[in-house]
Design a protein around this nucleic acid. Structure first.
Lengths: 215, 215
DNA sequence: GTCTATACAGTGATAGAC
DNA sequence: GTCTATCACTGTATAGAC
């Protein structure tokens, strides 16, 4: 195999990946606005200016599209948040940084997060194939690891005295589900800047970590 | 019309209402576990030990069942929470009482709340009839009024100095969506007592109002 | 690669017997 | 009132032309 064929192969692969991502972006939007079940492949195809045929060329099934949205969304948020979990600060400081990054990522990639949170974990029509069930289990595992990371930092904060002593699992779960609940009311506005999102994320994080009371 | 016929009419009406409530309880469970769209009328019928015929005798359509679940769930939570909105305490004190009552009600009637939060507000198959659209708008209005009540108490707490000054709308919305996010992870366990639920509701409320930090 | 045409299954809703 | 039987329709997925 020559360098030329390798390069050609790489270009094709990149184009293929770009086409997939385009479909994912549209699919996440459709899933967000219609819900996974109501969303039709025709809707997604229309969103990319094509027909079913193209969608089914890149994805084997509707559920596989959901899995790909799930995977992509989790990668985006992990890349944004995980770096903040380590570092010199107290548990509280790191938890604030993680929460702000999580909230900002959620508002930025709202449709991906919204789709993930729809939780298509029950029986679909028809029963999941073994391959799909395994991939879904892997993704749910990644999500659990992500929550475990929060739990670990919470526990460290309780040990170093920066956070009040409570059940770390309940605390982390409540913090994350509260952050995720943003997608039940947040709407993307046309002219919103990154700074606005960061400010909103910081205010929300302050509510959750510091509380609503006068200090 | 004699007293006898009135009484008979009342008994029939009560029996009719009881039959409807039985269906609603089962439907809320099915909607919770399968999602509104995946849930079939056959599933609901099986849950009450009957066939479709009985379900369609009491409800005109699947969407009407959803509306009835929505209405019933909202009535339950309003009856539990609204009394705490008035009273002599500070805004903070009343907000805590309301939040605890809301959380406990949510865990007690988990399937109703979960169904409400699925938000079937988009196009369903086929398009909503005018009657259904109007009832849905009314129910969404009731939900907005419910949130407005929280926002009012939040604003009073900021005025009386018991709560930190922030946007009351954002604060109330975040508090309510955080409380509602409980239904994304809470699972009813067989032997759980009312006291356990109240304790959990109190701890969660403390996290949200007082925060996670050392005071 | 992308399209059109179609098979196929699942399910909401109705009709009519009992 | 509750059932059985059936219709009508939607939407996933596939086959094959281009």
């Amino acid at each position: 195999m020559t360098a030329d064929t390798t390069e050609t192969f790489g270009v094709d692969a990149a184009a293929h990946e770009a086409a997939r991502t385009t479909i994912l972006d549209v699919a996440a939007e459709v899933f967000q606005h219609e819900g996974f079940n109501r969303a039709t492949i025709d809707d997604i195809a229309e969103g990319i200016g094509a027909t079913k045929g193209r969608v089914y060329y890149y994805f084997r099934s509707k559920f596989d599209i959901y899995l790909a949205v799930y995977e992509h969304g989790m990668r985006l948020v992990r890349e944004a948040v995980e770096p903040h979990a380590e570092g010199p600060g107290t548990g509280r400081d790191r938890l604030i940084a993680m929460s702000e990054a999580h909230a900002e990522n959620l508002m930025t990639y709202l449709s991906y997060h919204n789709t993930i949170h729809q939780g298509i974990h029950r029986r679909t029509t028809p029963a999941l194939k073994a391959r799909q069930a395994q991939q879904l289990a892997e993704l749910n595992g990644i999500r659990e690891d992500y929550e475990t990371m929060f739990r670990r930092v919470v526990a460290e904060g309780m040990t170093d005295g920066s956070l009040r002593d409570e059940d770390p699992q309940l605390t982390a779960r409540m913090l994350l589900s509260s952050l995720n609940s943003i997608d039940s009311w947040f709407h993307t506005r046309p002219g919103q800047s990154t700074e606005e999102l960061q400010d909103l994320a910081a205010r929300i994080t302050r509510m959750l970590i510091t509380g609503l009371e006068i200090q």
